[in-house]
Computed example of a mutant assay.
Amino acid sequence: MIELFDVTKRFGSETAVDGISLRVEKGELCALVGTSGCGKSTTLRMINRLIEHDGGEIHLDGQPVRNFDEVELRRRIGYVIQSTGLFPHWTVARNIGLVPRLLKWPKARVRERVEELMHLLGLSVAEFADKYPRQLSGGQAQRVGVARALAADPDILLMDEPFGALDPITRETLQQEMRELQARLHKTVVFVTHDMDEALALADRLVVMHQGRIVQQGKPIELLHEPANPFVESLLGGLDRGLKEAALIQVSERMLPLGPRLLASERIAYGAPLSQALSVMLWHRVDRLTVVDEEDIPIGELSLRRLLGAKAS
Score class of each variant (00 low, 15 high):
197 D>R: 10
197 D>P: 01
197 D>C: 00
198 E>K: 09
199 A>M: 04
200 L>T: 03
200 L>W: 04
201 A>Q: 05
201 A>H: 06
202 L>F: 14
202 L>G: 13
202 L>N: 12
202 L>R: 13
202 L>I: 14
202 L>Y: 13
203 A>R: 14
204 D>M: 08
204 D>K: 10
204 D>F: 08
204 D>N: 15
205 R>W: 06
205 R>P: 10
205 R>L: 14
206 L>I: 12
206 L>W: 08
206 L>K: 12
207 V>P: 09
207 V>N: 10
207 V>A: 12
208 V>R: 04
208 V>A: 05
209 M>Y: 07
209 M>S: 09
209 M>F: 13
210 H>W: 09
210 H>M: 10
211 Q>T: 08
211 Q>F: 05
212 G>L: 03
212 G>P: 08
213 R>Q: 15
213 R>H: 11
214 I>N: 02
214 I>V: 11
215 V>W: 07
218 G>I: 01
219 K>A: 15
219 K>N: 00
220 P>G: 06
221 I>G: 01
221 I>H: 10
221 I>W: 02
223 L>H: 07
224 L>Y: 00
224 L>D: 00
225 H>I: 00
226 E>S: 12
227 P>S: 11
227 P>E: 09
227 P>N: 11
228 A>C: 03
228 A>W: 03
228 A>I: 01
229 N>W: 04
229 N>I: 05
229 N>R: 09
230 P>T: 07
231 F>Y: 15
231 F>Q: 04
231 F>D: 02
231 F>E: 03
232 V>I: 11
232 V>Q: 08
233 E>W: 06
234 S>A: 15
234 S>F: 08
234 S>M: 12
235 L>I: 12
235 L>E: 03
236 L>H: 03
236 L>I: 12
236 L>C: 10
236 L>Y: 05
237 G>F: 02
237 G>A: 07
238 G>S: 07
239 L>G: 00
239 L>S: 13
239 L>V: 13
240 D>H: 12
240 D>L: 15
240 D>Y: 11
